[in-house]
């Protein structure tokens, strides 16, 4: 455990130094993560105002709080690993990772968290600014805040394992951009990024319950908004654990097969 701590500390340190080198790129990425939910916020807020102040049980303030929460949770859980993998295999960087006596996923997790940690310095004031600008009112129950922490960690981990596994399709084909795009579009609908899931038809909501996307984004957001009962919380955590385990097993499987393929075709 101590050794792991040392390794992660080393990776964090490196990630932070590298991120500092690319401050502008970091800000551009960050801007994308802020503008998208902000856009939906403005659209839905306008729709709500035109509908007399409420749409499908969401009033104007709910939309504001919802999309600010989407921005925060999205930021906390997003990964760029699918693009990273294509690059590292094409450039032969994966061989170097394989020679290290540690699973390559750890450096990626540390890298991701390092970025999040650094960008928090921008995200925190942006959140406060948006809340002030849109006059958001939010009174969470203490238990939802307490539950939010593990729920967010689970959301991050399950998303990380799944996207890390899908990224490894690059072992079989370099043309994974189309797959990435499909994944993003499906996720846009079923994760609640585009609009709260309760606004979608019943069938989409049922599908969202079965798919992993809701548990990566919408569930933590709904929890922050106080729209989850304690019973639903337990069910949600169960779903997250299930998808995390499935993602972990899938990752192990595809990693082993991927390495074998990589090793067969020349590293």
């Amino acid at each position: 455990m101590f050794a792991f701590y040392t390794i992660y500390k080393g990776y964090f340190r490196t990630a932070l130094i590298v991120q500092f080198q690319y401050r502008v790129a970091m800000l551009i990425w960050l801007l994308g993560g802020i503008i998208e939910p902000l856009m939906y916020l403005v659209v839905w807020r306008t729709v709500s105002e035109q509908q007399g102040g409420s749409v499908g049980g969401f009033d104007t303030n709910d939309f504001v709080v919802y999309f600010i929460a989407v921005m925060l949770v999205s930021h906390a859980t997003f990964t760029w690993i699918m693009w990273e993998y294509i690059y590292r295999i094409r450039m032969g960087l994966f061989s170097v990772m394989l020679l290290k006596p540690i699973h390559p996923i750890h450096s990626d997790i540390a890298d991701n968290i390092g970025y999040k940690f650094l960008t928090l310095t921008v995200m925190a004031p942006v959140t406060l600014l948006l809340a002030w600008f849109f006059d958001a009112s939010w009174r969470p129950a203490p238990w939802t805040l307490a539950a939010f922490v593990p729920v967010l960690i689970l959301a991050f981990l399950m998303r990380f394992y799944w996207e890390w596994s899908l990224a490894m399709v690059a072992f079989w084909t370099m043309r994974i951009d189309a797959m990435n795009q499909a994944y993003i579009v499906v996720g846009l609908f079923f994760s609640g990024r585009l609009a709260p899931l309760s606004l979608f038809p019943e069938i989409v909501q049922r599908a969202a319950d079965i798919l992993p996307f809701r548990w990566m984004l919408s569930f933590p957001v709904e929890l922050l908004l106080g729209r989850i009962t304690p019973r639903e919380l337990l069910i949600g955590i169960g779903a997250q654990l299930f998808w995390l385990l499935a993602g972990y097993l899938f990752m192990q499987l595809i990693y082993r097969a991927g390495i074998k393929r990589y090793a067969a075709f020349g590293a």
């Binding site: 040392t6 340190r13 006596p101």
Partner: peptide
Amino acid sequence: DTFELNRAV
């Protein structure tokens, strides 16, 4: 810094 990283790994 790379050396430090290798030390950890």
